[in-house]
């Protein structure tokens, strides 16, 4: 028997598979986040999609992200909008300006809500949710 049994105990939403974004999710699994970049004009874009809105090229390449950025905004959620998060409240979610010029929304660790500030430097980290899914999180830089 090969080890391909799906993880049936994970009770949070899973990202639907998407050809355009597979390299991004694979990079998280590798704990080395990569971002989509236009292979022609070099514009970095996120979330992954097939066309560069700057030069309309459909040629893509994937660059290793610095994983560094600054807090743009945040919310502290006290209500479980999905039963899978009932045990994780309050949930601290930050929107982060990555140094590459795109943003990521993810949970933040190691910072109390009243410590959050716009512009605060953070770095990406990785949490393996299942054997097939790794999610990004942020920590103070």
């Amino acid at each position: 028997m090969s080890n391909t049994m799906p993880d049936t105990t994970y009770d949070k939403p899973m990202p639907p598979l998407n050809r355009d974004s597979k390299p991004f999710w694979d990079s998280l699994k590798d704990h080395a986040m990569r971002l989509q970049r236009c292979a022609d004009c070099g514009k970095v874009r996120h979330y992954p999609r097939p066309v560069c809105d700057s030069c309309y090229s459909m040629e893509v390449d994937w660059m290793r992200a610095s994983g560094r950025g600054k807090i743009h905004s945040w919310t502290i959620t006290h209500h479980a909008f999905h039963p899978g998060f009932l045990g994780n409240l309050p949930l601290a979610l930050v929107t982060v300006d990555l140094d590459e010029g795109v943003r990521i929304c993810a949970q933040i660790r190691d910072l109390a809500p009243d410590q959050l500030r716009v512009g605060m430097p953070v770095r990406v980290d990785y949490e393996d949710a299942t054997a097939d899914l790794t999610l990004p999180v942020f920590r103070p830089a």
Binding site: P15, P16, S21, Y47, H82, L93, C105, L135
Partner: peptide, 11 residues
């Protein structure tokens, strides 16, 4: 749904 709901940014 793909990029934010898995982290809990849902509603």
């Amino acid at each position: 749904g793909e990029y934010e709901m898995p982290s809990g940014n849902i509603a």
